[in-house]
Write a protein that binds this DNA or RNA. Structure first.
Length: 471
RNA sequence: GGCGACGUACCCAAGUGGCUUAAGGGGAAAGUCUGCAAAACUUUUAUUCAUCGGUUCGAAUCCGAUCGUCGCCUCCA
């Protein structure tokens, strides 16, 4: 079955045609590790995870590269201001290298908690400085660069299709309307390939180059590293929707100017997760992290389920209410699946080994249609509620679907074993005794007492279950 | 100022010309179960798709206008 993807280049759905049959080269813009990632960042990483899982589900051998930006990303994309890493260093008193390591570690942990499949390779910008310098040399040789007092710049006027991805109306851009920009730039869309270290200042991260000591501009890392691992032209490149006008536009300019070939066939961009106040932004100071939602009593996968519920190209307004809804639905889903799983173990029949074609096809059709995950979730619920399928068939379908959904439905889900204090257990036992003696008044009192102490009691056929009440 | 996206039930949300007098989930209500609860399960919950016009045999889906929300052109997924 064909996979259909919405290509930002051309703004239309297209049938995915790989460069090499059966293989897919994928590059996704990763985090800048000067701070924690917020849940908005993870919405994009989750979208990319869904995409990759769908490619794998369809039998593709995916080579996936994700960069870790640990240098060169300036406070402003207008090539002004401080390096984000150096700024973080000044704020915390740690070295930039320590900061990068610390936030990288956190990013990896969060990604793991969300069941995001790691890329084939993470590429750190500072590990590939030579490759970046080589690419700048290539551009220099071909006459696309010029030098100013603060760096080596790319002359965008040398390309006749600059801005094709973003459909930029360059005349209409109000560059510098909100910040000062270098007066030495020849065109307002020109950008830095290499920045010189300030004369009187020693940077923690700086390297020698043919043009002088300094560090690479932000955009060049993606061009250089994707080329090294995926080649001059590759299949799919993803990122947040905000990267269309500057970052990805400049990547295309650099790469295509250097190689003379088309850079990427399919560009895909995820929409934002927003708050009441608008878009989530690290520069606003406080922001929601995976850790924040865990502290509030949600599981990381509750957030994954939430993201499955809205198409990736549609903005999603975050609220605790919708996370509650996702949590409730996901928890009911897990319960249903657990019951199906138990039932399938008990009742074997000749249909056990089969994977009902119709349902499987419906699911594949949904996910292959530009990642229609909400529709895929609807198919999943349909399977669960379908009375014509045996438990074994349902189980097989669910296991298959979960290869794309990544909700851990293929695992036995047991509610976390909480440690219940012995005094609580005593009261529980007391209540069981009271119930056996049909002293329901006392039983109800004890239930009330436990509730006041923060524990909820749920009667079962033989005994009862206690749970800590989460706020 | 320029560019772009979006507006579907109480909430989230799919559908983008006939298969749909609109999926799925949350919530709510009723029922089953239970000593009572809770949970679970079953059923019900939009003749209607921001508003007003137009195109069409046929529109939530196409076109135009209006209103509203938001994003980008600073950093940003």
């Amino acid at each position: 079955m064909d996979i259909i993807l919405f290509n930002t280049l051309g703004r239309e759905k297209q049938v995915f045609k790989p460069i090499i049959t059966g293989k897919a080269g994928l590059y996704t813009c990763g985090p800048t590790v000067y701070d924690y990632q917020h849940i908005g960042n993870f919405r994009t990483f989750l979208f990319e995870d869904f995409l990759k899982r769908i490619l794998i589900y369809n039998g593709y051998d995916v080579t996936h590269i994700m960069n870790i930006t640990d240098v060169g990303h300036l406070v402003s994309d207008g090539d002004e201001g401080e390096d984000k890493m150096e700024k973080g260093s000044a704020r915390t008193g740690k070295t930039v290298w320590e900061i990068a390591e610390y936030y990288t570690k956190h990013f990896l942990e969060d990604a793991k908690a969300l069941n995001i499949i790691p890329p084939t390779k993470y590429t750190k910008a500072t590990d590939y400085i030579n490759e970046q310098i080589d690419m700048i040399k290539c551009l220099d040789d071909k006459g696309y660069t010029y030098i100013t007092s603060d760096g080596v710049y790319f002359d965008t006027s040398k390309l006749n299709d600059y801005g094709k991805l973003a459909k930029l109306d360059i005349e209409g851009l109000e560059e510098g309307s909100r910040i000062q920009f270098s007066t030495e730039k020849k065109n307002k869309t020109d950008f830095a390939l290499w920045k010189f270290s300030p004369r009187n200042e020693k940077r923690q991260m700086e390297w020698e180059s043919p043009w002088g000591k300094g560090f690479p501009g932000w955009h060049i890392e993606c061009s250089a590293m994707s080329r090294k691992f995926l080649g001059d032209t590759f299949d799919i490149h993803c990122g947040g929707i905000d990267h269309i006008p500057i970052h990805h536009t400049n990547e295309i300019a650099q790469s295509e100017a250097c190689t003379g070939k088309m850079f990427v066939h399919y560009w895909m961009h995820g929409a934002f997760l927003e708050e009441d106040s608008g878009k989530m932004s690290k520069s606003k100071g406080e922001f929601l992290r995976i850790e924040t939602i865990i502290k509030k009593g949600y599981a990381p996968l509750d957030f994954r389920y939430l993201c499955l519920g809205t198409h990736y190209r549609k903005r999603l307004l975050f609220s605790w209410e919708i996370l509650d809804q996702a949590k409730a639905a996901f928890s009911r889903l897990k319960l249903n699946v657990q019951q199906i799983r138990n039932d399938a173990k008990k009742n074997f029949d000749q249909r056990d080994a089969s994977l009902p074609k119709e349902e499987k096809e419906k699911f594949t059709q949904a996910v292959n249609d530009d990642l229609n995950m909400p529709q895929a979730i609807a198919v999943l619920w349909g399977v669960i509620r379908n009375e014509n399928l045996s438990s074994a068939e349902k189980k097989n379908l669910i296991d298959s679907f979960d290869r794309v959904l990544g909700l851990d439905l293929d695992k036995d889900n047991k509610t976390g074993d909480e440690i219940i204090p012995s005094e609580i257990l005593e009261i529980v036992n007391e209540r069981i005794t009271a119930k056996k003696g049909k002293d329901f008044k006392k039983a109800d009192e004890l239930r009330g007492k436990l509730k006041d102490m923060g524990y909820e009691i749920v009667d079962k056929k033989d005994g009862a279950e206690v749970k800590k009440i989460r706020s």
